Simulated assay, not measured.
Amino acid sequence: MGVTEEQFYNPDNFAVMPMGFCYPGKAKTGDLPPRKECAPLWHHVMWKAFTHVKLILLIGKYAQDGYLGKDGKRNLTENVRHHQEFLPKYFPLPHPSPVNRFWRIKHPWFEEEVVGVLQNYITKSIQ
């Protein structure tokens, strides 16, 4: 994101909200999906605590499916490639999990084109 550790951990700049609020357990190639009842049960409560939200990073396909709804009919790659269609509210991103390293290798345009756009949005939002 192009921010310092101090900027990232400043609660006036960033908040992290998982799609699930409990560890779902291990699968063969990573963790199991978040439990389906968690987001509908807790997200609306959590959003009340967040004020002055300027941008929501939808990190991973579960977050994109949960928040983009009908607008996010594409797969993760297409959501990320067409990130500008979801701005100014949402910015879809791949999950930074080591399991996804092959996705980043296969899609060099992400680093070349998308990361810079994200960094510009973040810089403008935390000033």
Rank of each mutant, 00 (worst) to 15 (best):
Trp47Met: 15
Phe21Ile: 09
Asn10Arg: 10
Gln64Met: 05
Ser125Pro: 05
Lys26Met: 15
Glu37Ser: 10
Ile59Asp: 12
Val80Ile: 07
Cys38Trp: 13
Phe102Met: 08
Asp31Trp: 13
Met1Thr: 05
Asn120Ile: 09
Val16Lys: 11
Lys48Gly: 06
Leu32Pro: 00
Pro18Met: 10
Glu111Trp: 15
Tyr121Gly: 00
Ile56Pro: 00
Lys89His: 11
Pro94Ile: 04
Phe91Thr: 00
Cys38Lys: 11
Pro92Asp: 03
Ile59His: 12
Tyr90Gly: 01
Gln64Asn: 07
His82Gln: 11
Asn79Lys: 02
Thr77Arg: 10
Arg104Trp: 02
Lys106Trp: 06
Cys38Asp: 12
Phe86Tyr: 14
Asn100Ala: 06
Gln7Ile: 06
Asp71Ile: 00
Glu5Ile: 07
Ile59Asn: 13
Ile122Thr: 07
Gly2Val: 10
Ile105Asp: 07
Tyr90Leu: 01
Pro40Trp: 04
Phe50Glu: 11
Lys28Leu: 12
Arg74Asn: 09
Pro108Trp: 12
Glu111Asp: 15
Val45Tyr: 15
His82Asn: 14
Pro18Tyr: 13
His107Pro: 03
Pro18Asn: 13
Pro11Trp: 11
Gly66Ile: 00
Gly25Met: 09
Met17Asn: 14
Gly20Glu: 02
Gly20Phe: 06
Asn79Ala: 08
Tyr23Gly: 09
Ala39Met: 11
Asp12Ile: 05
Ala49Tyr: 15
Arg35Ile: 05
Phe110Glu: 10
Arg104Glu: 06
Glu37Asp: 10
Phe110Ser: 08
Lys36Thr: 04
Asp12Gly: 04
Pro108Asp: 05
Val16Trp: 14
Val115Pro: 00
Gly72Thr: 00
Val3Asn: 06
Val16Cys: 08
Trp47Ser: 14
Val45Ile: 14
Tyr9Cys: 06
Pro94Val: 03
Gly116Asp: 11
Leu41Asn: 12
Glu111Tyr: 15
Asn79Cys: 10
Lys89Asp: 05
Thr29Leu: 12
Val114Asp: 06
Trp47Gln: 15
Ser125Gln: 10
Met19Gln: 07
Lys73Gln: 04
Val16Glu: 13
Val16His: 12
Pro88Gly: 04
Leu55Gln: 03
